[in-house]
Design a binder for these strands. Structure first.
Lengths: 237, 237
DNA sequence: GCAAAAGTGTTGCCCGTACACCCATGT
DNA sequence: ACATGGGTGTACGGGCAACACTTTTGC
């Protein structure tokens, strides 16, 4: 290396907040993935925490998160976006650790939970029944949930949280779960349709009523929309 | 220290993108503060860059930014919010440096520019006449500008960029400068007034036409609004 | 009185909301 | 035929956009 610095170095971790949805025909429950800290002698032993890990020397932050996500969920290509960086000097009792938090979204149906190296077990938790969390992870989780709710209004979330083919009712149930309030289904349908980011993909079968159309997210159409400068905007939904 | 880690450490810097506005009666120009890298033998010597610096061991990220801002502008209490963290392993040729970028807003009238320890000089640049920037600072600046423009729609920006007392015309000119498009002044006036975050503070004098009312930002009213759960929303302005 | 800039009124239109209503399928 | 959920039509209201209009000062 041609140059070096005369400055102090810091430990840096990434902490993804992983929201997972599981959809049935007309319900959707949204949970968050936590791990139980399993190394005896370490602070917060036995408490629940976000499934983070240290950043390796030659690894970008995004790559570090992708690696952690793969280790925890067994799935690659999980959606994740950077959320906020927490750098209070006292946030880790062992010394200074700066953490870059991420927001990750996944369909729980795709996951095979695997406890990581320093976790006793991994589990999905309801958002209104969270255990006490280690470090400042409660604050991080709060910020992630706020971001998720804000995101709904200007970006096509949900498509990461659902299976590839889904019905309007499922998407509707997901939005209700995320926003924690009811949404008029007819109006929701029109609001989404207006965006032109869905492609039809067949129909339900074997239901004792009119079959629902199935949709898939049209990433190309979404890309075109962004490039053409038109804002994705679901209004107030 | 009771515990230590067996993991690699990283250098961490903060890089504020400092936007500064200068208002006359009916114009407003928005510029960004850059420094010229002044230490011979260091990479990007002689090029322009964001005025960042290393985070000290016992210092929070916010404190590090506040310190940098004070050093560069001579002003304390400058508005700054965290923007994004850039951690590509190759972003600094000397080795791995992770940087936490901040968005800072200030009234240029308050600034006394001071070149920092490793800067030859500091200067305000027009946004459409930027020099080539060192490191990945062009990307950081782009992200900061996008955030500033998005912020306008849901938060009372501008009040950090103007003197304590200002006219509607000045605020209007600022919004036009930030968004880089024209806004109907009568409608703008109503949109702002509806928010109830301004207090009247006298009138202009010595103008050869009807004097404009002067306003100041009412932080208490804004705080009350946030706590009561009402969303600040300027609509599409 | 006139010019110049501050500030108000008015109208049309779009879009979010609420809710009544029709459609397609299995039993 | 009827129950069940999928999907469409319609009418009301609030807010943004455009622009005509009135107000207040200095000269």
């Amino acid at each position: 290396m041609a140059y070096t610095y005369e400055y102090p170095a810091h430990y840096v971790t990434v902490d993804p907040v992983i929201f997972g949805a599981q959809s049935t025909r007309d319900t959707c429950d949204l949970k968050v993935l936590l791990i139980e800290r399993g190394v005896a002698g370490q602070p917060f032993h036995g408490q629940w925490a976000l499934p983070g890990g240290f950043v390796k020397p030659e690894e970008s932050l995004d790559a570090a998160v992708a690696r952690e996500l793969q280790e925890e969920t067994g799935v690659t290509g999980v959606f994740a976006e950077q959320l906020y960086t927490f750098g209070d000097p006292k946030r880790d009792p062992r010394g200074r650790v700066i953490t870059v938090a991420y927001l990750a979204l996944i369909d729980r149906g795709r996951c095979k939970l695997q406890a990581g190296t320093d976790a006793a077990r991994a589990e999905w938790f309801d958002l209104d029944r969270l255990p006490p969390l280690a470090f400042d992870h409660a604050e991080i989780l709060g910020k992630a949930l706020a971001r998720l709710r804000a995101k709904v209004h200007y970006e096509p979330i949900g498509f990461n949280l659902l299976p590839p083919l889904f019905t309007m009712a499922q998407l509707h149930a997901l939005y209700e779960a995320v926003l924690d309030r009811t949404l008029d289904l007819p109006n929701f349908r029109r609001a989404i349709t207006r965006l032109n980011v869905l492609r039809e993909g067949g129909e339900e079968t074997n239901v004792s009523h009119r079959p629902a159309k199935l949709f898939r997210f049209d990433e190309k159409a979404y890309g075109r929309m962004l490039r053409s400068g038109i804002h994705f905007d679901t209004g107030k939904l």
